[in-house]
Amino acid sequence: MKAIKFSLFLILLSIFSFVNAQEIPSLDIKNMDGSVYSTDSIVNGESPIIISFWATWCKPCVRELTSIAEVYDEWVEETGVRLVAISIDDQRTFNNVLPFVNGKDWPFDVYCDPNGDFKRAMSVNMVPHTFILDKDRKIVWQHTSFAEGGELELIELIRRLNDGEDISE
């Protein structure tokens, strides 16, 4: 009974969520070679940013990023969007992130969060988890999980954002 009450409470809490569009937190993560990278450097002028949390062992994540990689140049040309992929691979697989990404020939930037500091600060529970940031670096949309064709939804949202629409639901 207690468990049910607790869950009802959580569900209610999420419905009455008090969202202030938030900026991404400022903290140190890593480049794929292990050197320090500050999340303050995740910028894209006046254009939108997509942040995608993933891991080398996460099949849906790799499917999503591979689908995006195929059309990424067109996306950038059309909308000016920048995709930043954050690997949450921990020390076990962290060293293979750079060879993995190069092996896939992905055209976007990849950074690493091996102990989950950025993941926790962004309230990410599981991967894949994708955020869209507007020109002021405020989080305006987020989504978890990936289904085939999900990338079409993503670029559609970027287009609407560029048109000045409010895409937060």
Binding site: L10, N20, Q22, S123, N125
Partner: peptide, 26 residues
């Protein structure tokens, strides 16, 4: 936290935000 992040925060703590996540498995 809600109090700080909503209503009053507009005046007292204009740059504050609150966020969270939950997970429950049955």
């Amino acid at each position: 936290m809600t109090f700080l992040a909503t209503g009053y925060s507009q005046d007292l703590l204009p740059n504050s935000s609150i966020q969270g996540d939950f997970q429950t498995d049955f």
